[in-house]
Design a protein around this nucleic acid. Structure first.
Lengths: 336, 336
DNA sequence: TTGTACGCGTTATCAG
DNA sequence: CTGATAACGCGTACAA
């Protein structure tokens, strides 16, 4: 790139020192109105802008926030849940004049961003147990940290999560109320705290009604559409179910595909309830009954908290957002 | 954040000068094996990493690429087409050890990123005519630039686009072949070059068959689901159509919703073909006939070109990717 | 093989 | 009000 003009040159042209130029750049007092105007004119004329990284070095502050999604990019971008979180995050960082650095990596390489001091703070989106070593490292560095889901290994990591167990409970209860008794569960990866909580919600709803939990009714998926498809195929092969709780909408869409291919119908033969309420949930076939969580709001909240922590403000370190059952057309009364 | 160790301190502990430490950090020769080992041990011990921004200032290279989406975040993140592009971009930047900076803003503020010298190059994703002033500014700064869609105002901007007119032509031809004669068109915003090309493809397919183009059959949408919904409502109110070409899948999904609410059926009453082939296209109701473009590959290609330009390699400045008609179930033979 | 001295573009201190 | 001067953390001619 063409080498751009710098503060020294501006100072020279204005016949003042760098210091004075710096003063007007940062809206500081103690500059004669006359000088200020002259400097401003020259800045305008040469379309000058201070170099952000030189500022970062000098100020020890980069005005950059990094959103880390410790999974590979295809996992992330195929799932609108993450898009919604990022939408919220970017809205908030924009509003506060922070730049947004994005990092995907399933290999923990994102810790380098902290070591290299590229960001004033880090947002962890959906970290799993495998990330706990890296998280400890970040905590050791005293890097401001907020997670968009539960982090179990450290009380120094601020997190905002949704009430996962309640969500799964509501989903299961809904099916129970429709008369279903044989209810399967396609879970996300067990290395996510959310998956464990959701399982617990599912199990406790069953117990509540005196139905014993059958391990063969459960599958562990990877949260992708394909894995929802595969998990449902296994369930269809091995057990007789009339309904399934699926731990993400994306997997639910895959599950519906598997049901269709097996020559059955959703919801007539098998009712399905998802989790997340992604924007497409109302438009798939059939429109998905699901657990709504406001990922956009979560993204905003997470970014806002991080900025507060960076500014040394006091914040609540544990927040749980509520969830809600959204009934659409993928569930119906049990006909078996 | 806790202030971290720097190169000077490492040098001191190793009993050498910064220069020597810098040499081992950058894998340069002329360091005694013994010294190298000692320095490496200390680096390891203190978990030291050079400050990326100090390097950037010194090297005049930030190893950062900025992806600019000159629209507001909700426009972007609600559309999986952009997610797919970003997925490709991030894959490629990751592979080449570039950091990815993300910028949304419908107000042209992204030029600041160049002025502040935060990035070695910029990827423009779907810029519109309103961005041409800013693009000129970027060109003036000699900022390496690649666009993921056509840019008409400057031959200095490398771009990769898809064959939009062919796509719309194929879509329209498909409907014509099914016997449709009254074919509407819901376009994207006219300030996108792609929208103009798509209109042209639509019109030329009609002319080919001797069908005159009726302006009242066309609506200009904003590429969102809602705007597809509204545009279709207007078409339904004012004209009698048996088929509609829609310029994005997202709008197509909205259009289907409008058809349903009007008490009609897709495709029996109205055939619809979309554009983009987003990952959800096969799963909506009915599965969407659409024009496939490989946005993931486009994202990779765009990032790769930018990196080549940054490295002063020669690249082809004009690339057009092919498109393909994907027939699913939202189109059928005309019954009128 | 190593180190001195300076440069990168910025801000902060403090004396005038 | 202003400007030397040092500092931020790093890279690199050039000399030794």
């Amino acid at each position: 790139m063409k080498s751009r003009i710098n503060i020294t040159q501006i100072a020279k042209m204005a016949g003042v020192s760098k210091t004075t130029v710096s003063r007007v750049l940062n809206n500081k007092p103690d500059v004669k109105a006359e000088s200020r105007e002259k400097i401003e004119r020259i800045i305008k004329k040469y379309n000058y802008y201070p170099n952000a990284y030189a500022k970062a070095v000098s100020n020890k502050k980069s005005n950059t926030i990094c959103a880390v999604i410790p999974h590979d990019a295809s996992y992330v971008f195929s799932n609108p849940y993450y898009s919604e979180i990022l939408r919220g995050v970017s809205q908030m960082t924009n509003a506060n004049n922070y730049q947004l650095l994005l990092s995907f990596s399933d290999d923990g390489k994102y810790v380098d961003i902290a070591k290299e001091q590229r960001a004033d703070g880090i947002i962890l989106i959906s970290p799993s147990c495998e990330d706990y070593d890296q998280i400890d490292e970040l905590v050791d560095m005293a890097m401001p940290l907020v997670s968009a889901s539960k982090v179990l290994n450290s009380q120094f990591v601020c997190h905002i999560c949704v009430n996962d167990s309640k969500g799964a409970y509501l989903a299961t209860e809904h099916l129970l109320n429709l008369g279903h008794k044989k209810i399967g569960f396609i879970n996300g990866p067990y290395n996510l705290a959310s998956s464990r909580d959701r399982y617990e919600g599912y199990a406790s709803a069953l117990k509540q009604k005196g139905i014993s939990v059958d391990e063969t009714f459960t599958q562990e998926g990877r949260n992708s559409l394909e894995s929802g498809y595969e998990s449902m195929q296994k369930l269809l092969k091995n057990v007789n179910l009339t309904a399934v709780v699926v731990s993400s909408d994306l997997m639910a869409i895959g599950a519906i595909k598997a049901v269709n291919e097996a020559g059955k119908k959703v919801p007539d033969d098998i009712s399905i309830v998802g989790f997340d309420d992604i924007p497409f949930a109302p438009y798939v076939n059939p429109p998905l009954t699901t657990i709504n969580q406001d990922a956009y709001f979560k993204g905003m909240a997470v970014a806002e908290k991080l900025i507060q922590i960076i500014n040394n403000e006091n914040v609540e370190y544990r927040t749980t957002m509520d969830v809600e059952l959204k009934i659409r057309e993928s569930t119906t009364r049990c006909k078996a």
